[in-house]
Nucleic acid binder design. Structure first.
Lengths: 330, 330
DNA sequence: TTGTATGCGTTATCAG
DNA sequence: CTGATAACGCATACAA
C-alpha cells in the first residue's frame, strides 16, 4: 500500500503538499498539483481511512441501523440507501440491531471514533434520551421512524393516511367488522401510533366502534399471520376483513386460509402493508398499502450526505406519499 | 472517549502495561492487571479500532460480499453469518457488489488497510487471478461459490446433487420434456456448472436428450420467470415441466401461469430452488430444492474466524447436504 | 505557495 | 515484570 510519503517522494514534494491536493485545499500551484496527481495515479495511491479516522476526519462512510435484514422491507430500504450513497461516493455499513437496544447503542457509538461519519436509523429501540447524546459526534437521520422533538432530520411516510385509506377502502367494500393487526402496540404513543390513529379515525368516521377482541398486537411474521387467522376463525363473532401491518402477516393469513379452505375475499378480506414483490404473487393477489421504500431510502441518503457536507443545513422533516394498491384480496 | 492514556493515568501505570492487559500478554502481575481492569471499567474504556487498524492489528471485523441484498437468499445468508459472528464477538460489514467486478475488487482491497480482517465471498465476479493476490492481506473464504484451486476454504452445497435430484423427481412424476432455467450460462465451466451437469446427468440416465430450445440462461428475477413462461406457452412443442434456478423465477412463472389460466402442475409442473419462505406461500405450494442457507452462513463464519485466530489451520472444503422439498407444484 | 513538526490512539521494540 | 519511545498514515498549526 502506497502511503502519502511515497507520493511525496515520487513527486519530489512534501507530505503536506500532497495532503493539500488530496483534500482540495487552496494555495497549491497548478504545476505541483499535477505532479502530485500524477504520482498518486502511478502508485495507485489511496488514503488510508484508518489514519484519517484516527485524526478525527470524515471518511465518506455512513452507517445504517436496521432491525433485521431478512425483512424485505428493510432489504429494499438498505438497497436504495446504498445505491444513492454509492453514486455520491459514500460507502454504507449495515448494522442489524435485531431489535436489541444494547446493540443499537453500540452501533451508535461507532460515531465516537468516526468508524462512521453519520448514521441513518430505520427503527428506534432506545429512549430518545439515550440516543440524543450521540448527536455530538455526528449527524443522525431518522428514516421510517420519528420522534416528536425536531432535533434531527426525519424521512417518513404518512402512515396515518396510509392506514386510514386502507381501512376506508375496506369500509367502502361494505365491511363493518374490521380486525387490525399491528407490529407495535395499540397505544397512543410508541411504535405504529400513527397507524393506530388511522384505523381508529376511519372506523370512527363510519360510526363503527373498535372491538378490542379484533386488535392483534406485536405481530410480525408469516407464522404470526397464520396464528391470527386461526384465532379469528375460532371466534363466534368474527370480523369480515382484516387490516394487517405487513405483507408477511397478510401472506401468513392467506396461506392458513387456503389450508382451511376459507375463501378470500368472500369469507374474509385481507389488506397488507408495504407492497413487497410477494404481494403480487399471492393468490388472490394482495391488496396492500404501498410504501415508497426506494424514494425513502434515496431521500435518507441524500439528507445525511447533505448534513455531512454542510453542518449548517436546516433540519427538515420529509413526508412521502403513500397509496393503496387495490388487487383481489379485498 | 477514554483513551489508553486515561486508563494508564487512572491506574497509575504506563500505557504499555495497559496495552498488555488489553491484549492478554504474559508478564503482567495479577495485582496490576486488576488495577488496569478496574480503571478500564470505570472509564468505560474501549480500544479505538482506527488506531489498531493503523498499527495493522486485527479488529474482529469480517466483511461479506454479496451481489444483492434484496435477493432473499443472500439476506438469509448474511443474517446467518452475522448471527454466528456476533456470538463470537465479531462484527460483520456487508458489501453489495451488484455483480460489478470493479466494486468487488474495491471491497477486497479493504483487506489491505485492515478495514476488515477477512472476507467471505458469496459470489465471484472476477477471474481468480485478480482475487488471489489479496490473500496476502488476510483470509478469504468462499461461500456458495468455489474455484477449482484449493487455495482457500470453501463452503458450498452439493448443487450437482440438488439439481440431479430435482430433475429426477420430475422424471419420476412421468415428465420427459423438461425445461431448464439457470442464472448462469449453460456451459461446462463457470457459474452454475454443477447444476448444469446435474440436469444433464439426470436426463441422460433416463435416456432423454437435452433440447436446447428448452434451456434458458441468465434468468434471475420474477419478471424473467414471467417471460420464460410466456415463451414456453408459445412453443409448438413445449415442455411439460421446468426446473428453475430460484424460487423467484418459479414464482414469476406461476404468477404468469395463473394470469393465463394455465394449471399447475397439470399443464406444466414447476420446481424451484432455495426453499425461501415464499415457496410455501404460493398456490399451489412450490416444490423446491432446499439449500441449507443458515448452516452455510454459520459454517462460513466459523471457518473464517478459525482462520483469523489460527493462521496454521488447515484449508478445508465443506459440502452441505441439499434436499428436495416436495409440495404441490410438481 | 511550500515545508517542518506534532499528535491522533495503539502496539512493538528495547532497555531497565 | 515494567516503562520510555518509536512507528503506523494522515492533516494541521506554525514557520518560512
Amino acid at each position: 500500500m502506497a502511503t502519502i510519503m511515497d507520493v511525496a517522494k515520487l513527486s519530489g514534494l512534501s507530505k503536506t503538499t500532497v495532503s493539500r491536493v488530496i483534500n482540495n485545499h487552496a494555495y497549491v500551484s497548478e504545476e505541483k498539483r499535477m505532479l502530485v496527481l500524477k504520482a498518486m495515479e502511478e502508485l495507485d495511491y489511496y488514503p488510508n481511512p484508518a489514519a484519517r479516522r484516527l485524526r478525527g476526519q470524515l471518511t465518506t462512510t455512513i452507517g445504517v441501523i436496521i432491525p433485521k435484514i431478512t425483512n424485505p422491507f428493510f432489504a429494499y430500504l438498505v438497497d436504495a440507501i446504498e445505491q444513492t450513497a454509492y453514486e455520491k461516493g459514500y460507502q454504507v455499513m449495515i448494522f442489524q440491531s435485531n431489535e436489541d437496544p444494547v446493540k443499537e447503542l453500540s452501533f451508535l457509538s461507532l460515531l465516537k471514533t468516526k468508524q462512521v461519519d453519520g448514521i441513518i436509523m430505520t427503527a428506534i429501540e432506545n429512549e430518545w434520551e439515550k440516543i440524543e447524546p450521540f448527536l455530538a459526534y455526528g449527524p443522525i437521520v431518522l428514516c421510517n421512524e420519528y420522534m416528536n422533538e425536531p432535533a434531527v432530520p426525519v424521512i417518513k411516510m404518512d402512515q396515518f393516511k396510509g392506514t386510514y385509506m386502507g381501512v376506508k377502502h375496506l369500509i367502502e367494500r361494505g365491511h363493518q367488522k374490521i380486525a387490525y393487526c399491528t407490529g407495535g402496540l395499540f397505544a397512543e404513543e410508541g411504535k405504529d401510533r400513527d397507524r393506530n390513529r388511522g384505523y381508529q379515525k376511519a372506523l370512527e368516521e363510519a360510526g363503527i366502534t373498535v372491538n378490542p377482541n379484533w386488535v392483534f398486537v406485536d405481530r410480525h411474521t408469516i407464522e404470526d399471520g397464520k396464528q391470527v387467522l386461526k384465532k379469528i376463525m375460532k371466534m363466534e363473532n368474527r370480523p369480515t376483513a382484516v387490516f394487517t401491518g405487513s405483507d408477511e402477516i397478510a401472506a401468513g393469513m392467506m396461506a392458513e386460509a387456503t389450508e382451511l379452505g376459507i375463501r378470500i375475499p368472500e369469507e374474509i378480506a385481507i389488506i397488507g402493508f408495504d407492497d413487497q414483490p410477494l404481494a403480487a404473487l399471492l393468490t388472490p393477489k394482495l391488496t396492500t398499502v404501498r410504501q415508497p421504500v426506494d424514494q425513502m431510502g434515496q431521500k435518507a441518503a441524500e439528507v445525511i450526505i447533505e448534513q455531512l457536507q454542510d453542518e449548517t443545513v436546516a433540519i427538515c422533516q420529509y413526508e412521502l406519499p403513500i397509496e393503496v394498491i387495490i388487487r383481489h384480496s379485498t
